[in-house]
């Protein structure tokens, strides 16, 4: 097509070297979802206000809707699909299940990725710190109560 301007995007995604065609117009979110088939990151707003598309870019929490795909050439990306290990779920994921920290689940990938980043940086957050860190992730189902409990429980478990 005349408008398409494809390039080969090479990046390490969830620990695996991936090379696939993307469009120069694609955001990282679009490239992950519609080109690479990695559909865990969700589009909730496409302008950085909901956090459903949160991923780790070279270890740092970002909104994948606010990153151009072309920017991540050679980078390392972790999505929700890369949080569990072959041995089992990450304690964060387990705590989200146990604490019923999700209802519809659409915000869950973003919350879990953001929590992963939080606990890397601050393994023992207070409730206030957890709420502040996660303020960029909207949830409309839970009122956040059970999410915050799950995050604090995961921090406890990781610490012990």
């Amino acid at each position: 097509m005349t408008t398409a301007n494809h390039f080969v995007l090479s990046a390490v995604i969830n620990g695996e070297q991936r090379d696939f065609l993307a469009d120069e117009r694609d955001s990282l979110l679009e490239a992950l979802r519609e080109r690479a088939g990695i559909r865990g990151p969700k589009e909730g707003c496409n302008n950085g206000n909901c956090g459903a598309c949160s991923v780790l870019l070279d270890g740092r929490l970002v909104n994948s809707c606010l990153v151009m795909a072309a920017e991540v050439q050679g980078a390392e990306i972790t999505t929700i699909e890369g949080i569990a290990s072959p041995e089992g779920l990450d304690p964060i994921q387990q705590c989200f299940l146990e604490e019923a920290a999700l209802q519809c689940g659409i915000c869950t990938p973003g919350f879990i990725v953001a929590t992963k980043a939080l606990l890397e940086e601050n393994p023992t957050p207070t409730e206030e710190e957890a709420r502040f860190w996660l303020a960029g992730n909207l949830c409309r189902c839970t009122g956040y109560d059970k999410i915050i409990r799950a995050v604090l429980k995961a921090a406890d478990q990781k610490g012990s």
Partner: peptide
């Protein structure tokens, strides 16, 4: 500014 993810960029 923004939230944590915005501050990453």
């Amino acid at each position: 500014i923004g939230g944590t993810a915005i501050q990453g960029r």
